[in-house]
Each structure stands twice: as structure tokens, then as C-alpha cells.
């Protein structure tokens, strides 16, 4: 990791990102490892709760994958939860991603994202306005959020509680005039409260990556195209498999419940569940729970 050099780019240098210059309280300069976002490409930041639900993970992966496939750069804060999930997924799907840190650029925080820190340097970069060696301090994180929002064309909120760091980023984005999208959730779910409120306040509804791609001007009429494909997603499945699909949801359902709902023989059920997983229709959420997989264009790839 230490092989990649740390550069300091002053706000006066031509290399300094244009988007960062014209915001209130712009940084004087930034430390960079890897490369800077390509100004010629669209950039979306995907942010959300550090303590996400299974639904949030699915949604973050779904959007990051869908956007990365269209060459959109994903920016986020390298934190636990939604941030890390969307960045890892973007990299895995062949896209590029940029991490904005609230600590020194050579500090890995949180530890569990160490792999992401290494991978991101290959296909993106790390950016921080704090000098190397700065330890992660709670006071620094809200400030770095202005850089996250500033670098993006669209800010996508995946899961957020009523009061969260995400709302700070949203406020910065509004100040900076960026578009805001939120992934809707159940009205009873505290983790979706923030998102649903944003939508109520006028943010765009993100139900599929095409919604965002359309807002970015990358595709036209994306929604309808997507819907058509979605209908075909389960064609070619057997009767039993469809029966299983019908009792699944985007929230985890346990194998016991599937068994009693479908009335299938257990051994058959496990075989079919495995086949459906291999087809990419469903996903194992761990501990015997299964969820429907949010899929880009129904192509079954991971």
C-alpha cells in the first residue's frame, strides 16, 4: 500500500478538481493517493447508514453495480455499511471509485475495509484534506462530507435514520446545488425514515439505476426499458422455482417459512434454492434466510 505515493494538490494548481473550487468553505488543498476523478465522466456519491440492513446492502449493491456498468464513478466516505458496500461493488463490477477520508490518507479506518483501501488504489483513488497521520476523529467526518457532495453530480442516499451523518451531506449537497436521490423504504422502517423524508421533501425517487442514469443524461427512457426486462427475468423457471420465487421478498425469508408456504419436500427445496442462487435470481442472506436479488437488466451476472 505504501508504494503509492501521496501527493498534495494545492487549490491553485490546474489539477485541482474544478468541482471543489466553487463551493462554500472550499479546501485549500487536498492529499491524493491513486488518481483523481475523471472530470469527463459522471460521478455519483452513494451514501447511507453505517449500520445497514440486508435491504440496504442489496440496494447499495444494485445501484453501484448498475451505475458502474455505465461508466459512472462512485464516490463515498469509505465508512462501514453502505459507503463501503457500494464502493466495493463498484470496483468489483469493473467501475472506478473514490474514497473521501475524514482522517489522514495513510490511516486505514475502519479496519474491516482494509481490502477496499488496497483495491481502490488500482481503479480510483483516496482523497483527504487532512495531513497524513491525522487520526480518525468524530469532529472531522462531517466536514469531509462537503467534499463528497461537491465531487458528485448526483447524491444517492440508500438508507438513513432520522438523524444521521447522511443528513449533513445532504445539506451540503443542497448548498452546492447537487441533485439528490433517495431509495424509498418501508414507512415503518427506522432505517428508511431519512430516505422517505427526503423524498417527501422533494428528492428524486431512486427505484432502479436507470432513474439516476436518466438524471445524469446518460440514457433516455431508462425506466420503461428496465421494467420490460424485469418482467422477463423469471421466464424459463420451473413451476416449483416460481412457487419459491413467489414467497420471497426483498426482505429475508427463512427456509422454514419457504418450506411451509410452498409445501415442498425439504430436500427438493434445497436443490431448487441452490439452482435459483446459481441463476442469480435469489441470494442467501445468511443463517438460512433468502432474499430476491435486485438485478441489473436481469442478466444474472454478479
Amino acid at each position: 500500500m505504501s508504494e503509492t505515493k501521496i501527493r498534495y494538490i494545492c487549490a491553485l494548481e490546474p489539477e485541482f478538481p474544478e468541482k471543489l473550487k466553487n463551493i462554500p468553505n472550499a479546501p485549500d488543498g487536498i492529499y491524493v493517493r491513486g488518481c483523481l476523478p475523471d472530470p469527463g465522466k459522471k460521478t455519483v456519491s452513494i451514501i447511507g447508514s453505517r449500520n445497514n440492513s440486508e435491504y440496504g446492502r442489496g440496494a447499495a449493491e444494485y445501484f453501484a453495480r448498475g451505475l458502474a456498468k455505465h461508466g459512472v464513478q462512485i464516490v463515498s466516505g469509505m465508512a462501514r455499511g453502505i459507503d463501503g458496500i457500494s464502493q466495493s461493488t463498484a470496483l468489483k463490477s469493473g467501475g472506478s471509485s473514490f474514497g473521501i477520508l475524514g482522517c489522514g490518507i495513510d490511516v486505514v479506518y475502519p479496519e474491516e475495509n482494509r481490502l477496499l483501501y488496497e483495491r481502490i488504489l488500482e481503479k480510483g483513488g483516496l482523497i483527504s484534506e487532512y495531513p497524513p497521520g491525522t487520526p480518525p476523529r468524530a469532529a472531522l467526518f462531517p466536514q469531509r462530507n462537503r467534499i463528497i457532495s461537491a465531487l458528485s453530480d448526483v447524491l444517492l442516499v440508500v438508507e438513513a435514520r432520522q438523524r444521521s451523518g447522511t443528513s449533513i451531506t445532504v445539506r451540503f449537497a443542497l448548498e452546492q446545488g447537487r441533485d439528490i436521490f433517495a431509495v424509498p423504504g418501508r414507512i415503518t422502517d427506522p432505517l428508511s425514515y431519512g430516505c422517505n423524508t427526503l423524498i417527501a421533501d422533494g428528492a428524486g425517487i431512486a427505484t432502479c439505476p436507470e432513474d439516476i442514469l436518466e438524471a445524469l443524461g446518460l440514457i433516455q427512457g431508462g425506466r420503461n426499458k428496465h421494467r420490460k426486462l424485469n418482467l422477463n427475468k423469471f421466464s424459463g423457471l420451473s413451476e416449483t422455482q416460481l412457487k419459491i420465487i413467489r414467497c420471497l421478498d426483498y426482505n429475508p425469508v427463512s427456509i422454514n417459512e419457504i418450506a411451509s408456504k410452498t409445501g415442498c419436500d425439504l430436500s427438493d427445496l434445497m436443490l431448487e434454492l441452490l439452482k435459483l442462487q446459481l441463476l442469480g435470481c435469489i441470494e442467501n442472506a445468511g443463517q438460512g434466510f433468502y432474499i430476491l436479488k435486485l438485478e441489473v437488466n436481469g442478466d444474472g451476472s454478479r
Binding site: N51, G81, L191, Q287, F289
Partner: peptide, 10 residues
């Protein structure tokens, strides 16, 4: 991972 869980992934 049911919906009643208040722990979250972390």
C-alpha cells in the same frame, strides 16, 4: 436477519 432485528450488520 429478520426485520425485527435492531442490531444492523455492524
Amino acid at each position: 436477519p429478520g426485520q425485527r432485528c435492531t442490531c444492523g450488520e455492524t
